[in-house]
Design a protein around this nucleic acid. Structure first.
Lengths: 202, 202, 202, 202
DNA sequence: TATGAATGAGGGTTCATTCAT
DNA sequence: GATGAATGAACCCTCATTCAT
């Protein structure tokens, strides 16, 4: 039985690796050339597999695109959490501002990522059609933050909505202020945004 | 001289009409079939002009798309302003909530419009590369609202940013709550949003 | 191993056949309608393959055109060599005049071929970016003739240049004399040309 | 009558100027971008006239192209003649080598011109469908040279053909030696060519 | 499972030409 | 004569998708 398991795993591993290759390849190309200028051929060439293989793992370009958006948004939050944990911030207020700060800086340093995620940051933690393998983790982030917010302000009866608004506000305003400096550049905007976030959780 | 003017106008009028036809045609098709499923041919067929004519007025599909987004976002604000004017609301607080209300209802009733404008509502009033012909009006709406906000709360030193945040918050959260009921349906979400807006302008 | 070889060949054969079909189809159309009036669609329709297939084998119309020019020029020399071999001419002088004669007659009888090859006859034997498959043969003709010229006149130290001049002279003057009878018709011109060639190799 | 004549001339002058503008514009563009990448619009834009105006003077792109080839080839011979006249060369041998030298140097210094004229140099002096206005001059060059050759070598009974061969040989071999250094570079080739020309006129 | 040759609809775009002004 | 907006056929080429191997 062990033997059987191992063999299954070997094949499964191989498949997972191909899938990961395709995802990584697509991500690189989407970041470099944009989604519209990236073809399935580009993705498979770059991943070192045949064109037909793509269709064994994904439905079409938009399928892989969606999965990547979710994955990358999630990873951003994950990194941000690690960041605030490492910093040792305790109060929810400090922690949520840490997270915002981390994400904003990530976007400033990687504008391609910002363009890619666009205004869809919230997909990282609010998405019901989650990829199976990540489902557990994804839910965790949302639940962790909501629980912390609840503890921080036990009068707030709209914890979900508040968190949702904060994330959407960060995501949608970053897009304009970082990429177009509209209506004002990010460094001028950040304190105003942070002030607003503080008001939201109080 | 009158004669000269009239003759000029005749050709110019004709051109403007063609342009409007193309915009209207594209808008209808984008709403019905989506942008990806609409071809230049579709647009010109529907507008009753030759395919080549399209390229006399627009660069490509994304050019006309961008112009439509800006136009339709602007029109939405314009209608909302008329709505609050007709209602006779005086205080800025009431007026901004009227506007939010109008826009949200418009989106609820016309989900295709919501999908079309997406999270880009702010383009309606924040856009530097404005189409010349609308430039004056566009600026007006932004300036009117900023002036009103300033009068309403003369302690607020970030009038532009506040208005920007309000609009982005409405736009980005409507998208999810109306189309996906995520993280909660719009009727549950609206009072929370309105409450937040009130806090923002205070 | 044989089995493996055969299987490889099956696919490869198929591809080679497609390529040949396309070349033949293009050649026929170029001769009948001219290059400017022949579209890729025409070529693929005539070859019985899909339009996209063309682009698996050639870059564009000018790519296949160039390859055909080279191929057809080469074939002309090849036939001319066979002709003089069959005639049993021994001296280089007789052989080179045989070749000139054969080519001129071929052009007189097939004016479309003359128009097609134009003044580019020399591409048949002077071309460094040769199609791989023909490379060997192409080089042979040039080398055979240069070697024969060297043997015929061991004082000539510019064998390559002499042969090159002869071929260019035939090619470029045939064009005008055969197609336009300018400055005189081919039958009047031929003895003069032959006389000149004799002088050149002496 | 004078008055009438003058007015006619004014209009005629205007038309001639437009025509010249179009020719000059087309020549510039053909040289810069190649013929295939130059459109009628490009030509008229660059000439500062409306698109429709082109069709008042020329049939299509190939019409103006042909006229330019002839004009430019002719001008090259004209310049070459002036050059040898200025040098004071008397014998036909020296004069024809001067001409060859001038043309070759012109091609070396202006490879675009060489590409443009291609192997069609002879059109400059051998062309029956001459543009009316130049007809006189064109014929002159050919006649001058043929007369000189006749005087130089009164035994040569094929003056026309000899001159024709010389020009074609220069034109067609320059193309390969200057642009591709095939089969040898122009500086190595020139003495061989000159030697051959000397043999031809003797 | 994996391949990659073949498909062919349909995309965007160009541009010579016309013709009302 | 001169204009340039409008035309629309025709172009090249891409690319998602299929399927025999």
């Amino acid at each position: 039985m062990d033997n059987f398991d191992t063999e299954m795993t070997k094949i499964e591993e191989n498949k997972l690796e191909k899938r990961e290759n395709l995802l990584a390849s697509a991500y690189n190309l989407f970041m470099r050339k944009g989604i519209h200028n990236t073809s399935i051929s580009d993705i498979t060439d770059n991943a070192g597999v045949a064109k037909g293989t793509f269709y064994l793992y994904f439905i079409d370009k938009w399928d892989i695109y969606e999965k990547l958006i979710i994955e990358r948004s999630y990873l951003l939050f994950d990194e941000a959490l690690i960041y605030t944990n490492n910093k040792g911030s305790r109060s929810f207020k400090d922690r949520i501002l840490d997270i915002a700060d981390y994400i904003i800086n990530a976007f400033i340093e990687n504008k391609e990522l910002l363009k890619f995620i666009g205004r869809n940051l919230s997909l990282g933690i609010y998405n019901d059609s989650l990829v199976d393998e990540y489902q557990e983790q994804y839910k965790n982030i949302k639940e962790i933050l909501e629980k912390e917010l609840k503890t921080y302000n036990n009068k707030n009866r709209h914890v979900s909505a508040t968190l949702f608004m904060i994330i959407e506000l960060i995501s949608s305003t970053c897009y304009d202020t970082i990429l177009n400096e509209t209506p004002l550049p990010i460094d001028k905007y950040k304190p105003i945004l942070f002030n607003e976030i503080k008001k939201m959780i109080k």
